[in-house]
Design a protein around this nucleic acid. Structure first.
Lengths: 220, 220
DNA sequence: TAGATTGTTAATCGATTAACAATC
DNA sequence: TAGATTGTTAATCGATTAACAATC
């Protein structure tokens, strides 16, 4: 029935969407896959294939209607309706995420925030009053939350995650630098800064070794 | 000569390192690839292959010396010596990154921070006094910085990036939700929250459709 | 019309996984 | 010794890229 769209493709969709929204603002009516590819420095064939997986139909020589393509991508991402999420751990990173306007366009919003620090509990961040961890369970159940963002210290991540699952959460976005073990059927997405940096520094090394022998060698 | 280690492998190394450090603290002397794989819920063959790419030699039945493996992974990641980086955009996210202790283990440290907001300039964050953007060029050149972290609003990202490259930066870690166009030879690593979330929500949808038909359907 | 672009099938590429001999 | 684990080559898998007919 519905062919699964590969995760790598799904991950590129948000970039396409952002470009398209900018085209829309500029008043562009149609756009080709090649055009988007140029903008994002991607392979045109890849963009074409990615787009075709949404099921939209284009017109040879003309491309795709910008409005339609936005709708098509939004649907494929499941971002056409909004879901509620909570956030645990209101440190700097937690605060940054709570203030990130982009999320509203990503089909979800943070509706509750929790922390265990008495100094933070009760304060208001982006219009949300931080609640104590003790209230987590009741809140998740009552509001039927199934998505949680964890910005807690590494040491507490496993415990908090288990609590979340016990309450019925099925998706956890983990920013703590630890691998969490949870029962099957629970989805954990980890945003691991060290992993990203590892990739960046390796690429920098390659550039320096391959393209500029000797240049700034040993600096990174 | 030196076989390039694939980026996916490089990205897994930090997780291995973290596990190994915890083994070290527990006093473990040797560890097998299988053991690490179990801990991280990865395929043992994959871990074994990843490790072998560092060039370390293990002993059948015994595994690898924890200390040696840590050293080996650290070297492969280039994290054995420290590099200086600067950060542009001292908002909540910038602050969070400046306070992230993990980076010191990742072979780099943030030595300078810049912003254009007069209210922020001059304030101290994690022992670093925020400087005005005007001082960026002189600072980068004088301190021979080649890595910059950008936590600026999307609209400013391209301009700031160009300025950075002009000053001699060759690696940019971009947290702004835009694609930046730069000359070849400059490495840009983008940490795109929307992309991560797209992946997470797609996986949640799959779990709900595949494994629990009807269960909480339509919620995400 | 001519030619740029779509849609789709086939070829390639690279990472993951399997297989298995060597060995402590 | 027996068997768990390494090291390495081969098979598989899935994503990317190429090719090309269809078409506006």
């Amino acid at each position: 029935m519905d062919n699964k769209i590969p995760i790598p493709t799904i991950k590129r969709y948000p970039s396409y969407l952002r470009r398209l929204q900018s085209y829309q603002q500029k008043g562009m009516v149609n756009v080709s896959a090649t055009y988007i590819a140029n903008d994002l420095q991607l392979n045109p064939i890849q963009v074409r294939k990615d787009i075709s997986l949404t099921g939209i139909e284009g017109k040879p020589k003309i491309g795709f209607a910008v409005d339609d393509l936005i709708e098509s991508l939004t649907n494929s991402l499941g971002w056409n309706n909004t879901n509620d999420a909570i956030l645990i751990g209101v440190g700097n990173l937690g605060r940054a995420l709570m203030g990130y306007e982009g999320f509203s366009q990503n089909g979800f919003r943070i509706v509750g925030a929790f922390d265990k620090n008495p100094d933070i509990i009760g304060t208001e961040v982006n219009g949300i009053t931080v609640m104590p961890l003790e209230k987590l369970e009741a809140y998740v159940i009552e509001n039927r939350i199934n998505l949680a963002i964890m910005t807690v210290p590494a040491k507490q991540a496993q415990t908090v995650a288990e609590l979340l699952v016990k309450c019925g959460v099925i998706g956890i976005w983990n920013f703590a630098p630890v691998h969490i073990q949870l029962p099957e059927g629970i989805v954990v997405e980890r945003t691991d800064l060290s992993s990203h940096f590892a990739s960046l520094s390796e690429k920098m090394r390659r550039v320096m070794v391959d393209k500029k022998p000797g240049f700034r060698k040993g600096w990174l």
